[in-house]
Nucleic acid binder design. Structure first.
Lengths: 227, 227
DNA sequence: AACTGTGAAGAACTTCACAGCA
DNA sequence: TGCTGTGAAGTTCTTCACAGTT
C-alpha cells in the first residue's frame, strides 16, 4: 500500500457515527461523478446536492474524518475522493462468499456493482445438489459441505447470505466459525452473531411492506377527505 | 379531518414513527411463526426475541397502534397478527410494476417473498428491445414506451426500479406522472420525487461498503495491537 | 406474581446559525 | 465575500423503570 506514513494513515479520529459511515459510499460515488466531469473542486452544497443530502449534514459528516476542505473555496475533488476511498478500503480487493445461488444469489453473483467497488465474488456455495457442481457467472458452485473450505481458501471475511430463512442461523454460525466477520443477510429472519462480527440485513419484502403501509395511509386520507 | 369516524378502519392514532413502521413487518413475520407453532399468546419478551429487538422497544412500538395486550398475560397472537396485518394492508393485493429486467430485476420478478406478502408483480418493463417482447417469470416484458400504459392498466401505485443509475431519474418522473406514489429504488443514485410520493432505496454495493469500512477498522485495530 | 403501557431520561442524529479562515 | 467547520439547539429514536392491570 502506497499509503502516507505520517498522520493521515489512521490518526485516531473521534469515532465516526454509524449514520455517517452509511453515507460515505454515497459521497464517494458523487465525488467520482464530479471527477469524471473534470471538476477539480466542489462546494459542500454542490456535492450535497449530488449526494441527495443537505449541505450542513455533508460538512458535519466530513468533519468526522478530518478537515479536508478550504474555506471560501470548497473541497478538492481528487483529494477528498482518495480520503474517503481510504476510509472505505476502496484500494483493497475484498473477497466475498455468496451462500445460496437461487434467484437472488444468482443475480448477486453477477452484479456488476460489486466488482466495480472492490468486491470480488470469490466463491459460491449452495445446499441444493442440483445447483452445486454447476457454475454461475463463470464460477463453480460448491456444495454446502465445503462451506468452511470455501471461506478459508479464498480468505474471505465477508459473506452474503441468500438462502431461505430456516437455514440462515446455522449457516451463519458456520461462517463465523470459519472466520467470516461481516455478513450481509438477505434471509428474512433475525440473526444472532457474536460480538466483533458485523451484520447488515436487506429485506426486500419488508421494503415493499413499508411502502404499502404509507400507501394505505394515503388511501385512508383520501377517503376521509372525499367521503 | 376533524370528524372521527370511529369505525374499525382508521381509528386515527397518534402518528406512528417511521422507525416503528419499519419494524411492523418484522413483528408480523414473528407473529406468523408463533401462530404456525400453535401459540395463542406471547409475551412481549418472547415476541421481541423472535423479532430480534428488545422487549421495551416492541411494547412501545405496539403502543402506537393501540393497546392490544393483556397485563399479566401477553398478546393474543391471532388478534395482534390481524391488527398489524391491517396496518400493513396485508389483506390487500398491491400491484407492483418492475422497471428493468436485467440481472436483478429478473430475480425480483421471480422473488417468492413478494407474492407471499400481498404483492403481485403486475407488469415488467425494460428499455432493451432484446428483452422487451420476451417474457420473464411468466409475464410479458413490455418496452419502455409502454411504461405509462403498463402502470395505468394494472392500477399499480408501487414501482420497483432496477435500472442503471443514469436512466433512473427520468423513469421516476414518468412513473410519478403516470400515477405511481411509491418507489423502491435499486439504482445507485439519489432520486428526487414530489411531495406525497414515497421513496425507499436499496443499495447493494453500499451495504458491502459499509461492512468493508468496519472490516478495515478491525484490521487497523488488530495491526495496532499486534505491531 | 406476571406482564403491559408509558412518562421520563438518555442517546443518536439532524439542522441551525455563525465564528473563523482563505 | 464565500465557504468551511462546529457548538448549540432541535428532533427522533431507544432504553429505563415503574405505575397500573389482570
Amino acid at each position: 500500500m502506497s499509503g502516507q506514513r505520517l498522520g493521515p494513515a489512521t490518526p485516531r479520529q473521534r469515532p465516526v457515527p454509524e449514520a455517517t459511515v452509511a453515507r460515505l459510499p454515497v459521497y464517494h460515488r458523487a465525488l467520482a461523478t464530479c471527477a469524471e466531469r473534470g471538476l477539480t473542486t466542489v462546494s459542500s452544497s454542490d456535492l450535497a446536492a449530488a449526494a441527495g443530502v443537505k449541505a450542513a449534514k455533508l460538512r458535519k459528516d466530513l468533519s468526522y474524518l478530518g478537515s479536508y476542505g478550504t474555506r471560501g473555496v470548497g473541497y478538492e475533488v481528487a483529494h477528498l475522493l482518495a480520503c474517503i476511498g481510504q476510509e472505505l478500503g476502496i484500494a483493497q480487493q475484498w473477497a466475498v462468499v455468496i451462500v445460496g445461488v437461487g434467484n437472488l444469489g444468482h443475480a448477486l453473483a453477477g452484479y456488476a456493482g460489486f466488482a466495480s467497488r472492490g468486491f470480488r465474488v470469490a466463491a459460491l456455495v449452495d445446499a441444493d445438489p442440483v445447483r452445486a457442481g454447476g457454475s454461475v457467472a463463470g464460477l463453480a458452485v460448491r456444495p454446502l459441505e465445503e462451506l468452511e473450505d470455501a471461506v478459508v481458501s479464498c480468505g474471505a471475511s465477508i459473506a452474503v447470505l441468500a438462502i431461505p430463512a430456516p437455514a440462515a442461523q446455522e449457516v451463519t454460525d458456520r461462517l463465523v466459525a470459519a472466520g467470516v466477520t461481516s455478513i450481509l443477510n438477505f434471509a428474512p429472519t433475525p440473526l444472532v452473531v457474536p460480538a466483533g462480527v458485523d451484520l447488515r440485513k436487506v429485506d426486500l419484502a419488508l421494503e415493499l411492506q413499508i411502502l404499502a403501509f404509507h400507501e394505505q395511509r394515503k388511501a385512508d386520507l383520501a377517503r376521509g377527505a372525499a367521503g
